[in-house]
Computed example of a mutant assay.
Amino acid sequence: MAADKSGTQPTKAQQIADELKAAIERGDYGPGDRLPGEKALAEQHEVAGLTARAALKILRTEGLIEMRKGASPRVMSFELIRRHGIKRLARDQWGSGKTIWSADERLPDVDQIAVSENVTPPPHIRDVFELAPSETVCVRSRRYLVDGRPVMVAESYLPQSLVAGSLITQADTGPGGIYARLTDLGHAPARYREEVRVRMPTVSEAARLAIPSERSVIKLARTAFDSEGRVVEINEMTMDSAAYVLDYEFDA
């Protein structure tokens, strides 16, 4: 096995994981198919059981397989969510009463939702909103499931003075969601900015997403501006990196 670009020789566990990954990508193993177990891999590659276990752990961390106690590892059968980053935010989505998730063609279930009013915002949120120290925000926290699997947790921050008394402060915001209600308030989103980065999850994030602590998460922060340039919402999303493809298509 050749060294990688850094000149580092891959470990035996990584070599085995790469071979299994290539077999999955070729279609030798399809969704739901069983892979060789720890003992079979150890015998096949003439390595210790710990090495075979480490190889399988690499695949699990990357979200390619699922492992259950007492059962053979299986290829993950979950279909990746293709998140259409531009189409989902178009006015004809939420403006017609659709959820922005309908652009992704896979509607999620929300199994956890909490709405808190008059919250003192974190400093970075206050700065983006340009709020005075005494001003507060409304926070909407949700966890999203697709096919019964947690895929994302999100916290939306909105100026309390803007949304007080509106449906935005209720669990059910009605057709079109937050953006349709902002339109009702005279502050329809006219422009968005999304910032994407990848990092390791916190203990709390890994627990809420039910993912291994070694798997990275996608941190996507979306800021919505009205036609006057006022920031009307900041949505901070934490996404299972093994569940998503971020798809952006736009004209040249």
Results as ranks from 00 to 15, higher is better:
residue 160 Q to H: 08
residue 122 P to H: 03
residue 98 K to Q: 09
residue 157 Y to A: 04
residue 87 K to H: 11
residue 158 L to K: 01
residue 101 W to I: 00
residue 93 Q to R: 13
residue 117 E to Y: 05
residue 98 K to F: 14
residue 139 V to C: 15
residue 87 K to G: 02
residue 161 S to G: 15
residue 109 D to Q: 13
residue 112 Q to D: 01
residue 129 F to D: 00
residue 142 R to A: 05
residue 114 A to T: 09
residue 118 N to M: 07
residue 85 G to I: 11
residue 115 V to L: 08
residue 83 R to P: 00
residue 159 P to M: 06
residue 93 Q to C: 05
residue 141 S to T: 15
residue 124 H to E: 15
residue 123 P to M: 03
residue 142 R to L: 13
residue 142 R to G: 02
residue 90 A to S: 08
residue 140 R to S: 02
residue 145 L to Q: 09
residue 115 V to Q: 09
residue 98 K to H: 14
residue 127 D to R: 15
residue 127 D to N: 09
residue 99 T to Y: 10
residue 109 D to A: 12
residue 86 I to G: 05
residue 126 R to N: 00
residue 90 A to F: 06
residue 102 S to H: 06
residue 129 F to W: 12
residue 115 V to Y: 09
residue 130 E to P: 04
residue 151 V to W: 15
residue 158 L to Y: 03
residue 158 L to C: 11
residue 100 I to G: 01
residue 91 R to P: 01
residue 111 D to E: 03
residue 96 S to W: 05
residue 125 I to F: 09
residue 84 H to L: 08
residue 120 T to V: 10
residue 137 V to G: 06
residue 141 S to D: 14
residue 115 V to F: 14
residue 130 E to Y: 08
residue 101 W to V: 01
residue 89 L to F: 05
residue 125 I to P: 04
residue 126 R to K: 14
residue 84 H to P: 03
residue 94 W to Q: 07
residue 108 P to L: 03
residue 121 P to F: 08
residue 160 Q to D: 13
residue 110 V to Q: 02
residue 126 R to M: 02
residue 92 D to V: 08
residue 95 G to T: 03
residue 84 H to Q: 14
residue 89 L to Y: 02
residue 94 W to S: 07
residue 88 R to M: 15
residue 117 E to I: 06
residue 146 V to G: 01
residue 98 K to E: 06
residue 99 T to P: 01
residue 123 P to T: 03
residue 144 Y to W: 14
residue 143 R to N: 01
residue 118 N to T: 05
residue 98 K to Y: 14
residue 122 P to K: 08
residue 114 A to S: 08
residue 114 A to I: 04
residue 148 G to I: 05
residue 94 W to F: 11
residue 101 W to M: 05
residue 128 V to W: 09
residue 144 Y to E: 09
residue 150 P to Q: 00
residue 150 P to G: 01
residue 105 E to P: 02
residue 144 Y to A: 07
residue 89 L to H: 10
residue 89 L to W: 06
residue 113 I to D: 02
residue 132 A to K: 14
residue 100 I to S: 09
residue 152 M to H: 10
residue 88 R to Q: 15
residue 106 R to K: 14
residue 157 Y to E: 07
residue 113 I to W: 01
residue 90 A to Y: 11
residue 142 R to Y: 08
